[in-house]
Amino acid sequence: MSGLAIQARGLTRLFGNKTAVQDVSFDVAWGQVFALLGPNGAGKTTTMRMLCTLLRPTAGTAEVGGFDVTTQPINVREQLGLLPENPGLYESLSAERNLRFYGEIYGVPPSKLQGRIEEILKTLEIYDRRGDKIAKFSKGMRQKIAIARALVHEPRILFLDEPTASLDPEASKVVRDFILQLKARGGTILLNTHNLYEAQRLSDRVGIMNTRLVAFGSPHDLADRMWSRSTEVTLKTPDARFVTAIEALGFVKGVRREDGRLIVSMDDPDNDNPRLAEALVRAGAEVVSMKEREHSLEDIYLKLIRGDEAK
């Protein structure tokens, strides 16, 4: 396997005069989980549909598994498994019949198909219900069958559009855990979500979309790009003289008080935190805790989206 799993360059899609996706470019390497984040109407599903060859780009190009989405749609579709936002299962057919149909369409050899269906249903803990009609299934079970359908032919790339939307917390956890299993096995996944916790937990890299791609990278890299690094210090008795003492240190770029804690900005907390602690103790402070301040994906997302909307 060589090259990139997904490569999008300037993808743009208009619906009439409305721009749904504008000039979106990103890469996804093999074995990576990439999450597209964004508010409703940000163009995440449209982007996924263009990559799955369900919609043609108005402009730009994309390759999935080394095949062009516009000129080689059948080759692209042979590589992928899609979990759409709505499970879209045949209600009057059994779970097994639904999976068999898709397995046959993808050309899974009959000798292998039955074993594959059994394996995947057992992994998702729904093997006992394989003969039941989908109409009798709960939302969570339908979602599991839809995931099984996307995987029955062992696709090289998996597209998951809001995989836990409208699921209860327990069903969401089952689905998330299963995605983590796929990730551990080296699966390449493109995930559309507006669940930030889910994206942070599951993905290696994220793309934040608001019609165009606002930011792209790992959550850590994005935080580094957006904020300088800082250390959060909790003292037993905060006092102004401690602030003065640490402001005098050469590596400290700034100090501010926030909820009774001191937030100390610096370039290299890994090296400088011991010297910071030493200076505080020398000044008579009693240090309760010290840790590098981390920014959640939510902080990143909100800052980027609000900043983008303010433009």
């Binding site: 579709r77 042979e78 992928l80 899609l82 879209g88 045949y90 209600e91 898709y102 369409i105 050309g107």
Partner: peptide, 14 residues
């Protein structure tokens, strides 16, 4: 209407 078209169209069927 049953929303089964999207997964069906994403298969390698011509």
């Amino acid at each position: 209407t049953n929303k089964t078209l999207e997964p069906l169209l994403s298969t390698p069927l011509t």
